[in-house]
């Protein structure tokens, strides 16, 4: 458990640094900035209670808002994602989710991870752009932007996950 806390704090700092120092400066075609820091919320241990998860997510979003100069937008979306995380997990998992259940690429395999990332990131960006643009005549534009940003976030996250992949045999 102690080990978990240290690991997550390190992951938080690492992902924040990556997002602020590198990803925020990519600005692909003036349209997309992938939100890789969300991966931190997605990878938090399964054992954390929903309320705690939301509070952690709120802090994460707030930190990112400070750097991006957005008005509490990331905070809103992060809390929403944290709330929906248990539901996303229960949709995509066939196995029983007991205390042994671990959210990781090693344990759950490639297909599960990709599905998890796609659903979560699409939800995140969908909420983000809906609140940001706040105009339902632009619904197609919102979907277009969400799919586009979500796609880049998923690819980026997968690259990260495989970079820190710890041995054993891979399950596909």
């Amino acid at each position: 458990m102690n080990n978990d806390i240290v690991l997550n704090i390190l992951r938080f700092l690492g992902l924040m640094a990556l997002q602020v120092l590198f990803v925020n400066n990519i600005n692909l075609f003036g349209l997309v900035t992938p939100s890789v820091f969300v991966l931190f919320i997605l990878l938090l241990p399964h054992a954390i209670k929903p309320t705690g998860l939301m509070l952690i997510a709120m802090f994460t979003g707030f930190t990112q808002d400070l750097f991006q100069g957005t008005l509490r937008l990331n905070m809103f979306c992060a809390v929403f994602l944290a709330f929906s995380r248990p539901y996303i997990l229960s949709i995509i998992t066939d196995k029983k989710m007991d205390d042994e259940f671990k959210i990781s690429l090693q344990e759950q395999g490639f297909r599960w991870t990709v599905l998890y990332l796609i659903l979560s990131f699409f939800l995140y960006h969908m909420v983000y752009f809906t609140v940001e643009i706040w105009n339902f005549q632009n619904i197609l534009y919102i979907i277009f932007k969400s799919v586009y940003s979500g796609l880049f976030s998923v690819v980026f996250s997968l690259i990260l996950l495989y970079t820190f992949y710890k041995g054993k045999d891979r399950k596909y």
Binding site: N27, G30, T33, G69, T70, L71, E132
Partner: peptide, 8 residues
């Protein structure tokens, strides 16, 4: 610091 991808 400059952003262009947001609507604000």
């Amino acid at each position: 610091n400059n952003s262009t991808s947001s609507s604000r």
